[in-house]
Design a protein around this nucleic acid. Structure first.
Lengths: 149, 149
DNA sequence: GTAGGTGCAAACCTTTTGCAGCATG
DNA sequence: CATGCTGCAAAAGGTTTGCACCTAC
């Protein structure tokens, strides 16, 4: 199944870069890959604990940091002070619209947008490693209701 | 001088919207306007305390929230968990490139980028209130040096 | 065997909040 | 003079760290 294949990709790359592949990391990666949602560290911890109740919060944070450095997950700040993560492997890159009323996160992608960013960076001699584009506002559903945010 | 004029614009709009114009708010706005930098709440507090050592941290945070709601400052997360603010009055809207090596923040603007964002939002029936585009990577200077991030 | 990883709890940092007193409109 | 604002200190998130023990390579 696809998840196992992705797992071994992660395992290989981590090992190649001097990290160890532990049971906890396998569990965390499995949990992260299994969800196509945008999860917080805390939610991911809870997911992991369903399978192994003694995984520690610190391990989840440390592993997320490793995965982010290695490019397997991406963090975006949810606008409320916390961060949410999503896995990137096998996903196309996309940007986000965050509804300020209901918290929903919509994904979109526009190649021209990406191209213009590269262009703007080139003009300033800046080398992009990653980027984050978020549009904040109201989703279709929430525009009808009165604006309780 | 220009700052005084901007101050009174802020004062008027706040009063019009039911807020009070206090000495502390005047001081905070003056400090915020005086800096074209991207400051953290803590840095702004320190700036204010140079003039009045007993301004409280809470007041700075509360005032920044008001100013942000009223559209006079804009917060962007610096990628390190904290937020940085910049004043918007008399500034054109722009986006940011954040250097991961030296922390420098470059500003840029591209109208076509803005337009494509509106378009993408329209396609999904999303109403943009604000947006945040940040490119992370290495600035021109830091590309020469070896990558100590 | 040894570097790196883990769990726990405490520390940290930034931001928010409750409350009593104060100042603005 | 009523309501909104302030300062203080404590609380509240979310994330990081020190340390002793453990485990992958």
């Amino acid at each position: 199944m696809k998840n196992e294949q992705e797992q071994s990709i992660v395992a290989q790359q981590l090992r190649r870069n001097g990290f160890r592949w532990t049971n906890q990391r396998a569990l965390i990666v499995r949990a992260a890959m299994s969800s196509h949602e945008h999860y917080t560290a805390e939610e991911l911890l809870e997911l992991c604990r369903r399978e192994d109740p003694k995984v520690s919060r610190a391990t989840v944070y440390r592993t997320l940091a490793v995965l982010e450095r290695e490019g397997f997950v991406e963090g975006l700040d949810a606008g409320d002070g916390g961060r949410r993560f999503e896995h990137v492997l096998g996903h196309e890159h996309h940007d986000h619209m965050v509804c300020l009323a209901c918290g929903k996160i919509l994904e979109f992608r526009d190649d021209e947008l990406e191209r213009r960013q590269e262009l703007a960076a080139k003009r300033l001699g800046f080398a992009i490693e990653r980027h984050s584009l978020r549009l904040y506002g109201k989703c279709k559903d929430c525009q009808r209701q009165r604006g309780k945010r």
